[in-house]
Design a protein around this nucleic acid. Structure first.
Lengths: 229, 229
DNA sequence: TTCCGAACCTGACAATTGTCATAGAATCCC
DNA sequence: GGGATTCTATGACAATTGTCAGGTTCGGAA
């Protein structure tokens, strides 16, 4: 495993690429590499973060607990994404929990390295800004989807999203396997409703399953369903 | 009306305050002041923006059209807010429409003034970044609310939000009067459902109405309702 | 003023979704 | 390997929400 940030490929995918050699060196010297097991938390809602997490491997769900005790998953973050930025930048405690849905490898970067660079390197700041602008757009899309589409449409969309963003394994199952509960927390519905709709999709030949694993059989029909046919 | 950005009080409320004297001067020289009538659009979903809009007065709804033909209002923007930033920064066409819900006065600032400053003045960039971080957090909250709360709770919350953010007039009505349709588009429900719930609130003595105008009568009960009692 | 259209309101009904209860299947841990 | 626990699944039912179809009221224009 490469342990110098300067040489880390992951950097290509995130805002760290806009850092200068010296800045990267300082980040590299202060970072701490951590292994996170599936189900463990990187941080939890309300925590004050002393730094950000750069994901080298694995996938994390970012979720928020609602008053009625249900989690809403707001985003799934994978290799190359930086978590906790929003909180560090706004100097607020985080509004989301980050929990591993697969074993993960992350680098913890103390916030000083980040805030120093933010104040000195406009390219880096702009790069972070662009990323956040993108996240904001995605959040807007989620709002519209969740309020205007039926649960069925949202589940169909979630499967397509999982395929497009995380791919499939050799047997044609979605590479990212989520529990039924996680799926229902992504689309914002009751677990039983999600299960029922998954069964229905299976009966209609849109998907096939094997245990928790789900594979897409008829992508076109799923897409039509998302559009409302 | 003050026409030099350097002297504009609005600037105190947004990221423009982080600009240097010279930068502000250049913005001021290139800006165009516009009056927008209630119902007219500042820009529409899909437009490529050549600049941003700084709101001097009035209120705009930011909304996105969904496949089924309904608008979802994602945010209400008022005095001091800058619209179109996200799109200019990400160099994408906008994902939202901005339509005046009251007569407005705005300053159009060509994107060059903004992008130049973004590249040169890290304080400004950081300030913009902080604002966007805040918007992103709010968007996350909206996602959780919309997916986990009932329509009734969301409407109660919307009224409290309107009171806290836009205040009340002398007679105790919400200062920002929205049509029933706009209200339903804020909470993401059918217009009829919104109307029905407004009637119910009125019967229960939680609010009082006069034409389109709505006044809050029992704030405590509304708050309890939002919490789920 | 009077008319017209838009906005508001209400009822009846259907569809969607959530809740509760229960049972089987898978998984984990000793 | 076996028992406990968690996850998946399904039925029955209730609650919520949307849709359609009609009204009424309001505000602006002729």
């Amino acid at each position: 495993m490469e342990s110098r940030c300067e040489n880390c490929i992951i950097r290509q995918f995130n805002s760290l690429r806009a850092m200068s050699k010296e800045e990267l060196k300082s980040v590299s010297d202060s970072k701490i590499t951590k292994s996170i097991k599936k189900g463990d938390a990187l941080f939890e809602e309300g925590d004050k973060l002393n730094g950000v997490y750069c994901v080298r491997n694995g996938i994390s769900k970012l979720s928020k607990l609602s008053a009625n005790g249900k989690d809403q998953i707001v985003k799934l973050a994978t290799k190359g994404e930086v978590l906790g930025q929003r909180s560090v930048i706004a100097e607020e405690s985080t509004n989301l929990s980050a929990i591993a849905v697969q074993d993960m490898e992350v680098c913890f970067i103390p916030k000083e390295s980040i805030t120093n660079t933010l104040q000195k390197n406009p390219n880096f700041t702009l790069e972070v800004l662009r990323h956040m602008a993108h996240d904001l757009k995605e959040a807007d899309d989620v709002i519209v989807n969740i309020s205007q589409k039926t649960v069925k449409q949202r589940i169909a969309e979630a499967f397509l999203y999982l395929k497009n963003n995380f791919g499939e394994d050799e047997e044609g199952f979605l590479a990212l396997t989520l529990s039924r509960e996680d799926i229902s927390n992504v689309v914002g519905t009751a677990t039983e409703s999600a299960i029922r709709i998954i069964s229905e999709f299976k009966k209609k030949g849109l998907i096939h399953t094997s245990g928790k694993k789900i594979g897409i059989k008829n992508e076109r029909k799923l897409m039509e369903m998302v559009e409302g046919f």
